[in-house]
């Protein structure tokens, strides 16, 4: 049994980077008991999981914990996130998950707080397992696409049977019996579903937080149904329902980070902004990789060639793929650097920029949808800022200057979304300034030349 890692000097970590890793995603199990039809990991182009052990060995986990502690010491981290992931991490059992969290906490220097979560499909959650996780200070994030069987029709097991009954049971168990361990819900946007109905069904599961993830896709393998502004409209409809609720019913990461970025505050999401990315993955065989979402681009996109037995995480910081995600605007396409939404959009999710033969130096395949969404949120913020304070007075310093052509009523992009009959856009803040036909409206698209030579791996 070794003690906390000694503090030794490391490479520079100033504002110019490299920025140390602070989020460590540990693949506890490389397989999944579900076979979701849209899974980018098992249905995507990268099949590297087939050649790896199903579960991480004790040796891999011990070495990983040691490397995390070494990195925390070298960079004097005060906080780090330990994400126990998969596949389905609970296939490894709750005990091993708790043990890894405990071991990392043992090894990091005093004063470094370890925030541990497990991301699960919830089908294997039981009262006993949740008690083990909660006692170990491991919070539980759940992946679900809505709060009904219909919303989760694509989340099936290997025999094609719906996962919803078991997942719903697990999710309700967390909400009712272990609310302090409930981290939140991750939902992949399905634009064929009613946005407001989907959101409200998720509220029924009483999550403390929620995030809405655009399905992984890129210019060479576009996401499903990427026509018009379906994804942007879908997000706008949910935003209006959330914004006008009269109280904050749930934290919605994408929405709140967009507000933060619009107001010039620091933000925390891969989906938006220019913050340097600081997450790293350890696979079940000990390989150090970039995050799984890159595997949706092409086989080997996440590979670094490093492993925890022979390499430190500092060596991974020097990998060109990692460096590109910490380079801010330098790794963006020219179109993005010239875009007025740059500091908010940040080029969108890195994986969504890929184009075969041209790497990642492209705008997001969701460019138009992101523009639609960001301008919509800006218009709602602008309207709110022009309103009165809670004591009835107008708010000095709350006037907004500059163009407000937020596109919030662009033809062909109704806020309610194609399938919605829900109560969208009914609150006082939803009567935003009438936009011009937004820049992303039909008929105003232009074709940009493709920037070549942007590959990073």
């Amino acid at each position: 049994m070794t003690g906390p890692a000694p503090v030794v000097p490391g490479p520079r970590t100033g504002p110019e980077g490299p920025f140390p890793f602070r989020q460590f995603i540990v693949k506890m199990h490389g397989r999944c008991n579900l076979a979701c039809t849209y899974c980018y990991l098992y249905e995507g182009p990268d099949n590297s999981w087939r050649d790896r052990p199903a579960a991480a060995s004790a040796a891999v986990l011990e070495r990983t914990a040691t490397r995390i502690a070494e990195h925390a010491a070298r960079h004097a981290l005060r906080d780090l996130a330990l994400v126990l992931h998969g596949g389905e991490p609970l296939l490894a059992g709750a005990g091993p998950l708790a043990a890894v969290a405990g071991r990392v906490r043992e090894l990091v220097p005093p004063g470094c707080q370890v925030h541990a979560t497990v991301q699960t499909n919830a089908t294997l959650l039981t009262e006993e397992r949740l008690a083990v996780l909660a006692d170990a200070g491991v919070r539980v994030g759940i992946s679900l696409d809505g709060g009904t069987a219909a919303h989760n029709r694509r989340r099936v097991d290997h025999a094609g049977r719906p996962s919803w009954p078991a997942a719903a049971r697990g999710a309700r168990l967390v909400a009712e019996r272990f609310p302090e361990a409930y981290a939140g819900l991750l939902t992949v946007v399905d634009p064929t579903l009613d946005p407001v109905e989907t959101y409200e069904s998720l509220l029924d599961l009483r999550p403390p937080a929620l995030d809405l993830l655009l399905p992984h896709g890129n210019w060479s393998s576009p996401p499903p149904g990427l026509t018009g502004l379906r994804y942007g409209d879908w997000l706008c409809a949910v935003f209006d329902r959330w914004w006008a609720a009269g109280r904050r019913e749930v934290r919605v990461r994408l929405f709140e980070e967009c507000v933060a970025l619009l107001l010039g505050l620091p933000a925390a999401t891969e989906a938006l902004g220019l913050a340097p990315f600081d997450a790293v993955v350890v696979e079940t065989d000990g390989s150090i990789e970039q995050v799984d979402s890159l595997k949706s681009a092409y086989p080997g996109a996440a590979r670094t060639g490093l492993d925890v037995f022979r390499h430190s995480f500092d060596e991974a910081l020097r990998h060109p793929g990692v460096a590109a995600r910490q380079a801010g605007t330098a790794s963006l396409a020219g179109q993005c650097r010239a875009c007025p939404l740059l500091r908010v959009c940040g080029g969108g999710h890195y994986a969504h920029r890929y184009r075969a033969g041209h790497g990642f130096r492209n705008p997001s395949v969701y460019c138009a949808d992101l523009q639609r969404f960001i301008r919509h949120v800006a218009s709602r913020l602008t309207a709110a800022a022009s309103a009165r304070t809670s004591d009835g007075s107008s708010a000095p310093g709350s006037s907004v200057t500059g163009p407000v052509s937020a596109g919030s009523s662009a033809p062909g992009s109704s806020v309610a979304g194609p399938a919605s009959a829900g109560p969208t856009a009914t609150g006082p803040a939803s009567a935003g300034p009438a936009g011009s036909a937004g820049p992303a409206s039909a008929g105003s698209a232009s074709t940009w030349p493709v920037a070549a030579g942007g590959g990073v791996s």
């Binding site: 996130a81 709110a384 800022a385």
Partner: peptide, 14 residues
């Protein structure tokens, strides 16, 4: 905008 008058880091999108 005056934020007081007008409302705010893990980035891995767990």
């Amino acid at each position: 905008l005056d934020l007081a008058r007008l409302l705010l880091l893990w980035g891995f999108d767990s």
